[in-house]
Design a protein around this nucleic acid. Structure first.
Length: 271
DNA sequence: CGTGTGCCCTGACAGC
DNA sequence: TGCTGTCAGGGCACAC
């Protein structure tokens, strides 16, 4: 269930085992996920040393000493299994080091694997059009104001647009809008100044809280099973149809569809 | 251009 | 038990 916090948690978990290590073996079990695997994937990655791992939006990056970076996306159902005790039908790609094995498992196969020249990552079309990262100070009230200006589209959909902010998904958009007390159907261009000012910290805080939960879950999972696990957190609105708003304002969480996906919100405090 | 729709794929779950 | 329908955290191609 990968959104930004899960990707960040996954990258951190992989980094502990992969950074500085040499890839001794690469196994490809099928030719593609959403897109074909790079034809030279095995050749380039076999024997490569991993320099560092990082994240851009919901993509994980494995930088190697071959001037190339393996860029993975976990789609809807992807995860890396570290030292899996048994093979899984959906382990599509396996990387091995001297001490560990890393299986990219993705039942729905909405994920992707690309091999990009490290020096040209910023120009990679999928990255070039992206907005700022929601963490780390790039994302400002002024940026959102400019990005939303004149847009009639609902703010929920604006925030899912990776050109506006890179890495927000359905869960965290719902959660951030609740925190900022903004109605998800409000047109982007009509969001008020005070609402925008609340939105930036709301986004940052909900992501940071999830990442710290993910970190603790990861520590647990890294022990006995050796698998990466996704954080389990208590959402304020996501999936809480019919339950009381956590602000105790008498509101009941409601669900409706926007752009083919579900939105949850509190009609009492989100305006 | 901005905006809306449908599809890629498998699995989990509810209801019968 | 097994069938059927619905839904799922993403991204993209395509139509207007």
């Amino acid at each position: 269930m990968p959104e930004l916090p899960e990707v960040e948690t996954t990258v951190r978990g992989l980094a502990r085992f992969l950074e500085g290590e040499r890839i001794t073996r690469v196994t490809v079990n099928r030719p593609d996920l959403r897109r074909p695997f790079p034809p030279d994937l095995v050749q380039v990655m076999t024997g490569a040393r991993v320099i560092a791992l990082s994240r851009r939006a919901k993509y994980g990056l494995i930088h190697t000493d071959r001037a190339r970076t393996l860029v993975f996306h976990l789609g809807m159902s992807g995860r890396w299994r570290i030292d899996p005790p048994a093979p899984d039908t959906h382990d599509h790609l396996m990387l091995e080091t001297a001490d560990h094995r890393f299986a990219l498992c993705d039942p729905r196969r909405f994920g992707s694997v690309d091999l990009i020249e490290t020096g040209a990552l910023a120009a990679w079309p999928r990255f070039a059009a992206m907005g700022p990262e929601p963490l780390g100070g790039e994302l400002t009230t002024e940026h959102l104001k400019a990005a939303f200006s004149g847009r009639k589209q609902a703010i929920k959909l604006c925030l899912l647009d990776q050109r506006v902010v890179a890495g927000l998904g359905n869960i965290y958009v719902c959660e951030a809008l609740w925190r900022a007390r903004i109605h998800p159907r409000k047109p982007g261009g009509k969001v008020t100044g005070p609402q925008l000012a609340r939105l930036v910290p709301a986004i940052r805080e909900v992501l940071e809280a999830s990442i710290s939960d993910g970190g603790s879950t990861l520590r647990d999972y890294a022990g006995p099973t050796g698998e990466l696990g996704y954080f389990a957190t208590r959402f304020d609105v996501y999936g809480r149809t019919g339950q009381a708003c956590r602000r105790d304002d008498g509101g009941t969480i409601r669900r409706f569809a926007q752009g083919g996906r579900s939105t949850w919100f509190c009609p009492k405090c989100q305006r």
